[in-house]
Design a protein around this nucleic acid. Structure first.
Lengths: 183, 183
DNA sequence: AGTTAACTGTACTGATTGGTACATTGTGTG
DNA sequence: CACACAATGTACCAATCAGTACAGTTAACT
């Protein structure tokens, strides 16, 4: 039995969900198999490096998505205010109104940070830089822009924590609106 | 060999560090043994319920600390502004200027949330309620106060994520100052 | 049709997992 | 000094862990 559908690109999002749900240590190969409907043979065929390579591929995939869909539009949009508005809309959709976690955020807090420090660091730095650039082009000073950007990204991460903790997804959307209003 | 020093109260903070460092799933009994310098015999003597009971004791301990040292002073201090200032100072010290994680935050994001949902929810709800009460007494409307409180707690959690991700502890202190200034 | 290589299931490994059982040891109390 | 029990180390358990090996199978290309 072979080659049913499996393409590496199709597997990565499924892997992402498993890591999101269980974390790196909690994502056992059994759970990964469940989540991807793939046996060990297939999994190790695509990711000879094991869990580490899987997680890395997932992070790279998320990173690329944010870069293409958020960071670049944010930094390049001719209308900085429009780019920022689009960021908030996309973020709300991506995190499924607070029901979906930021895997980079989870990894930043856990012991996974040491393993994937470079990716985690680059992701947040890129986000802050892109938002900061847009804010600066919309009239803020360089210092103001970078502080506001950091505050906003932190606010989003914090809102994810809170809406998960309180089990009130609605509070995530409300928090996003407040953050947007402040800019 | 028996009764060297061990008191349950002395063990809990050590356990907390292990859970902080490795998360719930990652905190194996081997690591717990390392972190507490206790063998399985002792550990299961104090916590017959296993890891679940250990984590619960840790969460209860943290919860109690925040209640006594932050929530209650916040809600009861005759000078609400002074209580708020003290909260920020204590928070900065507790989280070791961003080098120490909020275990409740980590559990909120991970799959541990389901297991400890009640504790996690209660912790954040209590924090927001206490800060909200102080803000209301300092002149804000009920709605304003509760929104500001939620924003601030989220901001603190987000700042922890960011300072860990970017590996810049200093940014945590800066974020705290900005949050305080806004209130 | 035949070759090739990508893909996949199964069986296996040694190590580690959380947890139990229990005999032993030390210590505070009588 | 003796007793009871809290505290501890050790041996053990079945289950699961990540990872390997490999023989089959299938699809694409000639």
């Amino acid at each position: 039995m072979a080659r049913l559908i499996a393409e590496k690109a199709d597997i990565v999002p499924l892997l992402a969900e498993v890591f999101r749900q269980y974390g790196f240590e909690g994502a056992s190969l059994a759970r990964i198999g469940e989540g991807t409907r793939l046996g060990k043979g297939s999994i190790y065929h695509f990711f000879p490096g094991g869990k580490e390579e899987m997680a890395d591929a997932v992070l790279a995939d998320i990173d690329a998505w944010f870069r293409d869909n958020i960071f670049i539009p944010l930094a390049e949009n001719a209308e900085p205010r429009a780019g920022i508005a689009r960021m908030f809309a996309d973020v709300e959709r991506y995190f499924d109104s607070g029901q979906r976690i930021c895997l980079l955020g989870v990894f930043a807090l856990g012991s996974e940070r040491d393993r994937f420090a470079a990716r985690v660091q680059a992701y947040f730095a890129a986000w802050i830089a892109a938002l900061g650039a847009a804010l600066q082009r919309s009239g803020h000073s360089a210092l103001e822009a970078s502080e506001l950007a950091e505050e906003t990204v932190a606010g989003i991460q914090g809102a994810l924590v809170l809406s998960r903790a309180l089990q009130t997804p609605a509070s995530f959307s409300a928090a996003l609106q407040r953050l947007q209003r402040r800019l």
